[in-house]
Design a protein around this nucleic acid. Structure first.
Length: 346
DNA sequence: AACCCCGGAGCAGTTGAGGT
DNA sequence: ACCTCAACTGCTCCGGGGTT
């Protein structure tokens, strides 16, 4: 697979931000590594320092086939953090069309001669399909893979991602005015941690199985899409873009499993559950709006979203006689309602 | 020609399955 | 329950080959 020079690697990063509507202004001299630049988009104004290498196979037949890595070269002995900004440690894979991103906050100490940092093929593949994926490396570190179109989302949610939660990256950023829907406020308060949450009341504990049941039903329904996708994918080279159905199904699975895992903890992360729910509401809303006004509003949403998945929902891809999707959307609404009930009980 | 990147391999630590 | 050992993973280093 093609290896890219530093200039091309940097260009891939810039393209990702620009595709998300950012303006990118380099502040370090051309040809330097790491490169430093400023990204701007609306209220976002962020200084970014990027270390980047090609993502290659682990090396040699002795290494597992699924192991990919970056090797820290260029004589870099330590990752200098960007003061008042953000530091990215990236690997670009031309093969998968995704970036691997490693946690700079966990790699502050001096490096060896040319250490490598690994990520699995499965994580890269999953990110290729759904936009972002996370891999528990088992030592408390989470490696993240993101498609270029989600790079801005990664920058905005870096700490969450390296804590193992990429649902915020999967939810396209809302460009709307702050919503006056009280349910949105409940979710947003939970995501931002604006109030205390008390676990363990009888009502709260009784509500959890209701949420879990709905989540399980949703996951079962989404899983029914698998056989159709598998047969379709049978003769398809892996480097081809995934279908929107795969993308959306994968994203729903990711969000559902993230919420389910949390709710099984005695003290779940309310923010994680709320982020998954926010994603479900986004799907539900986009689909409802598209259905109600297939023409005008749909087009408006589409332009606003600048997102392949939104595009797909709005374009009516879900409603082409797919009764399965009707049921999935129904279950998404049920899950959302149960989560909202649960949040009120905390 | 010099430099740098990455393919490849060795080694050490950890984990978990299977045997006793 | 304990031990053994293979498999897995992370880290390091060397050297060939590509790039500048």
């Amino acid at each position: 697979m093609a290896k890219l020079g530093k200039a091309k690697l940097m260009a891939a990063v810039f393209r990702g931000f620009e595709a998300a509507g950012c303006t990118v202004t380099p502040i370090s001299a051309p040809g330097t590594h790491p490169i430093r630049f400023v990204i701007e988009k609306g209220a976002v104004h962020q200084t970014v320092r990027v270390y980047i290498w090609n993502l290659t196979h682990g090396g040699g037949a002795a290494r597992p086939k699924h192991e990919y890595r970056i090797q820290i070269t260029s004589g870099i002995r330590a990752f200098d953090p960007e003061p008042d900004g953000i530091t990215l440690i990236l690997g670009w894979s031309e093969q998968f069309g995704v970036f691997a991103a490693f946690d700079a906050s966990r790699r502050k100490s001096a490096l060896g001669a040319s250490p490598s940092i690994q990520i699995s093929e499965a994580t890269l593949n999953r990110a290729r399909v759904i936009g972002a994926a996370v891999q528990d490396k088992g030592n408390g570190e989470f490696a993240v893979a993101v498609r270029p179109d989600r790079l801005l989302g990664y920058v905005e949610n870096q700490s969450q991602a390296h804590a193992g939660d990429v649902t915020a990256i999967l939810t396209p950023p809302s460009e709307d005015e702050p919503s006056d829907d009280p349910d949105d406020t409940v979710l947003e308060d939970a995501i931002q941690g604006r109030r205390e949450f008390r676990f363990g009341s009888t009502e709260e504990l009784a509500q959890r199985p209701n949420v879990l049941e709905r989540l399980a039903a949703l996951e079962r329904e989404v899983a029914k899409l698998r056989p159709a996708l598998a047969s379709r994918g049978h003769n398809r080279p892996p480097e081809l873009l995934p279908t929107e159905t795969e993308t959306l199904a994968g994203q729903i699975e990711e969000a559902a499993s993230s919420a389910r895992t949390e709710l099984q903890n005695p003290e779940p992360s309310v923010a994680k559950v709320a982020r998954s729910t926010k994603f479900f509401r986004w799907i539900s809303r986009t689909a409802a709006a598209a259905k109600a006004e297939a023409g005008k509003l749909g087009q408006k949403l589409k332009e606003k979203a600048r997102d392949r998945t939104a595009d797909f929902i709005v374009a009516g891809g879900l409603f082409g006689g797919a009764a399965l999707w009707e049921e999935i959307l129904n279950l998404i609404n049920l899950v959302t309602n149960e989560v909202l009930k649960w949040l009120q009980l905390l």
